[in-house]
């Protein structure tokens, strides 16, 4: 499965992260994200996997006192997105995110998906309508909502809301998409929908997903990283990690002896 010609889309180099209370949540993480691949982050809760994910779109900048050390380099332009001179907004325009719980805005279905375009000052109604349709199709939601685009997003079911949030994130053509336990609040059918969706999405972009569900990681991802106490314990292609982990701790976690 490992394809040596696959390009690296982004990589973290010696990444440390400190919360405002001084807690060092990430310890010198080195890890690549391969282009058009899905990378899964697994590990017990509190291991830093969500913290790591949220470094990629500088979400930690919203709360004062948090501190990054090290680099996350984005290719092909070799920008270190953690650098002080790089605006977090610029990073978020390139890397979008889907959250643990669906968080649609108190707007219509259409306006939710169009949000990113409006934020980017897109004024052309035709372009917006086209992009919204494309994104909703990409998120496999179009057929269910095409007749009620002006309904409030809150009226959708949980699984539909989460797909709406994926459509919202897709509409702006991001280079990378981050998924923070995207199915933890959903039922098994909705979960299966979203997993299928992710597999389709990687044709167009690069995905990093946090999951506490090992089967999910095994099902959807190409690469898997096992984190524990803020450290990257093991990283490799998913088949290898799940069948022949090199470290005892990884094996214990995967087989359910721990965590």
């Amino acid at each position: 499965m490992m394809n040596t010609t696959t390009a690296i889309k982004a990589e973290s180099r010696n990444l440390d992260f400190f919360y405002s209370n001084g807690h060092r949540a990430l310890k010198s993480i080195n890890m690549p994200l391969y282009e058009n691949k899905i990378t899964a982050l697994i590990g017990p809760s509190g291991c830093g996997k969500s913290t790591f994910l949220r470094c990629f779109n500088r979400m930690h900048d919203l709360y004062p006192g948090n501190k990054y050390q090290g680099q996350i380099i984005m290719h092909p332009d070799n920008t270190n997105i953690l650098e002080a001179g790089v605006d977090p907004i610029e990073v978020r325009m390139r890397i979008s995110m889907v959250f643990q719980k669906p968080n649609p805005f108190p707007k219509t279905i259409f306006e939710n998906v169009a949000y990113g375009l409006r934020v980017r000052d897109e004024k052309n109604k035709r372009t917006i309508a086209d992009k919204v349709e494309e994104a909703l199709k990409g998120a496999a939601l179009w057929n269910e909502v095409k007749d009620r685009l002006n309904d409030l997003a809150f009226n959708l079911s949980g699984g539909q809301q989460q797909r709406l949030c994926i459509a919202r994130a897709l509409a702006t053509d991001p280079e990378i998409m981050l998924f923070d336990e995207p199915t933890s609040a959903l039922d098994p059918i909705a979960t299966a929908n979203i997993e299928e969706l992710m597999s389709g999405l990687k044709e167009k972009l690069t995905i990093l997903v946090v999951t506490h569900n090992m089967q999910q990681a095994a099902r959807v991802s190409d690469y898997t990283a096992y984190m524990y106490l803020g450290e990257l314990m093991e990283y490799g292609d998913t088949d290898t990690i799940f069948t022949r982990p090199t470290r005892k701790e990884t094996e214990d976690y995967i087989t359910g002896k721990f965590g």
């Binding site: 092909p76 332009d77 920008t79 605006d87 610029e90 280079e175």
Partner: peptide, 15 residues
């Protein structure tokens, strides 16, 4: 790379 960079410049102006 060139397209990403030119795109980035537009984004930076907007920001």
């Amino acid at each position: 790379k060139a397209s990403v960079l030119s795109n980035l410049n537009a984004v930076r102006t907007m920001i």
